[in-house]
Design a protein around this nucleic acid. Sequence first.
RNA 1: GGUGCCAUAGCUCAGUUGGUAGAGCAACGGACUGAAAAUCCGUGUGUCCCUAGUUCGAUUCUUGGUGGCACCA
Length: 308
Amino acid sequence: MNNKSKPTLIVLLGPTGVGKTDLSIHIANHFRTEIISCDSRQLFKEMQIGTAVPEEKILRQVPHHFIQSNSIFGSYNVAMFEADVLDKLKSLFAIHPLVLMTGGSMLYIDVVCKGIDDLPDVDSELRATLMERMKMEGIERMRAELKLLDPVYYHEVDLQNPVRIIHALEICYLTGKPFSSQRTRTAKQRNFDIIKIGLNRDRTELYDRINSRVDEMMTTGLEKEARSLYPYRELNTLNTVGYRELFDYFDGNCSLGEAIEKIKANSRKYARKQLTWFRKDPDIHWFHPDQEAEILKLITDYKLQIKD
RNA sequence: GGUGCCAUAGCUCAGUUGGUAGAGCAACGGACUGAAAAUCCGUGUGUCCCUAGUUCGAUUCUUGGUGGCACCA
């Protein structure tokens, strides 16, 4: 660690609804820096209420990047996010020794920190074809095909998970080589330091916050927002908690009350899934959202230690 | 007040011809490098309302309570 000029990326993460937003503003102001949002759904400008995008007056306090920056009608994926963020970081680090990234999209965080294998972007027609075949021919046929094209990956993959099987087949077809031969699964080197700060709080308290946030979304107009996106419900991005449950209600499959309960339950489930992922990351320093002073101290101490 | 029905998991309920019980939802855990708020996998967490009795053995049958619901007054 002799590179004293290395900039630092602070990663503020935690489950949905834990209270990342307020703290991120404080941290960014304290270090006079900017915020990169790491949220795979707040990226899309059409989805605002249901993804809990912070209100305008909060966003205005600190420059934010990658919030409402894309459209659900375009195509986007983690690999593009990696490239876009690295690009943005390059220009931000030119003026700030420290940049804050905040969000809860687990894979997106990992990709910024560790990178992802260099593979071709998937052609949407090929994906549609394979999905159709999965539906018509069944998962056994697709498994058998994967076994032929990539026996190595066949033995590693979760054979019950159609998404994994389809993606492997896509890469085999697109590159003409087995998917497994192109997976390095090694972390890329970054030319910046990373400090990961995880926020968590008492489970029942977290659930209370999630539940009341859903009620708040409903009073702010989530139903209307979902109604306006209903025609595009087949889009991948709209397969999102808060929207798909309402689409179900629009279809007449359940009452509005049931849909709202389902949104709450699925949001809680998502929070649990996030915690499962974060739990196995040994680099995360865990705090309660109220421990702002301790968090600022951790960052400051870390910066001093590097300068020595 | 009388009669009838009900009481089993956090919730809604099933079940045991007497051998301490299981579904859905909720909850909990895990996998996951281009769909990731996606996708996939796993786990029953219980004074079977209380009491006394019959019985080798009661959550199940009987007595008496308690609570709830319905009907009749």
